[in-house]
Design a protein around this nucleic acid. Structure first.
Length: 130
DNA sequence: ACATTGACTAATT
DNA sequence: TAATTAGCCAATG
């Protein structure tokens, strides 16, 4: 992507978000908060504004997420971004992402599809994929 | 500098 | 499980 034309106040943040999203493998997802946390891992970027929030990630995705697999970044409740739930459904079916419910009212099975960025000790998730 | 808004989250009911 | 409420941070007018 050519970010040379981008004139945003925080292009580094944008790049960082998109980078993380690209690391998400097909069939897996990550919440906005997790993505923000992954960026915080780099720290060098977080220092610019302190600590990023899930909302900031969402803002960046809304503006620059067009070039990445935005459907792999979802809300903590397992729902895809607003305005795109139907479009996302198609992608999930295509990639075999574990879903719960029906197309009319569904959500991604976070217990299986969520990338484990840091589930904290105590919660045991029987991840049986492969 | 204040008020509004947004592809959010966690806790309550 | 779903709907509501309050908290959150940074961009924008």
């Amino acid at each position: 992507m050519t970010w040379d034309d981008v004139k945003d106040p925080s292009p580094a943040f944008v790049q960082a978000v998109l980078e993380v999203v690209r690391t998400i493998p097909p069939g897996r997802v990550m919440t906005y908060g997790d993505v923000a946390d992954e960026i915080g891992d780099h720290a060098d970027l977080a220092e610019a504004t302190g600590s990023y929030g899930a909302r900031m990630v969402g803002q960046v995705m809304a503006r620059y997420g067009s070039g990445v697999a935005w459907w792999r970044v979802i809300r903590a409740t397992g729902q895809p971004p607003r305005f795109h739930e139907e479009q996302a459904w198609t992608y999930y079916i295509d990639e075999g992402t574990p879903l719960i419910g029906t197309q009319e009212s569904y959500r991604v099975d976070l217990n299986r599809a969520r990338c484990q960025a840091g589930p904290e000790a105590g919660s045991q998730i029987s991840l049986d994929l492969f």
